[in-house]
Computed example of a mutant assay.
Amino acid sequence: MSRVGRLGARVRLGAVFAVTYAAEFLVANAQVVREVLTPGSGVEPALLRQELAGRTPLEVASIAALVGLTPGTVVVDVDDPREVERPCMTVHVMFAHDLAEQHRALAALERRLLAALRGVR
């Protein structure tokens, strides 16, 4: 792929990532606001350990930052990709009703981010 074609792919994948992340961010905000404003508790907190596909410090730091920005999540620990073969991230989630779905959502977010950063799907 030519340099211009690769740049176009990165821009397109970056735009797709930005739009999908913004949508997920808004949904997470709505979920937290609903929890604050309604009686009772729908909170089901959990810690989950997610293996990461990112292999560089930039990739791992980027996914950790984006997850940490999302309401209802706190990144507790991130492995340094320079020190381990397969870095992992530990995340505290507020709404862990389905841990398998939480893992899938984090993996999908990371896949889209890596596609945008690397310029390939």
Rank of each mutant, 00 (worst) to 15 (best):
A30F: 04
A65S: 12
D98R: 12
H103A: 06
A116F: 03
V74W: 08
G42H: 13
R82Q: 15
P71Q: 07
R10M: 14
G54N: 03
R104G: 09
V75M: 12
A18E: 02
A64Y: 05
A107K: 12
E110S: 09
R49C: 04
M1T: 15
V33Y: 05
R104F: 03
A61I: 05
A9T: 10
T90E: 07
Q31L: 07
R112A: 06
A100N: 11
R104S: 02
A100H: 08
V19N: 05
S2V: 13
A28H: 07
A108V: 14
A18G: 12
V84P: 14
R34P: 00
R111N: 12
V74P: 15
D77Y: 07
G68Y: 02
E83T: 11
A108K: 10
V36C: 04
M94S: 03
R121L: 08
A61Q: 07
A30N: 07
P57Y: 10
A23E: 15
P87R: 02
M1K: 12
R112T: 03
L106S: 14
V32I: 12
F17T: 08
T38L: 11
E44Q: 13
E59N: 09
A107S: 07
V67N: 08
V33D: 00
L113D: 02
R6I: 14
R3C: 15
A9S: 10
E85Q: 08
V67P: 05
G54I: 00
G8T: 15
Q50N: 02
V32A: 07
R111C: 11
S2Y: 13
A23L: 01
G54D: 08
V76Q: 09
L26S: 02
A108H: 08
F25R: 00
E83V: 13
L106P: 09
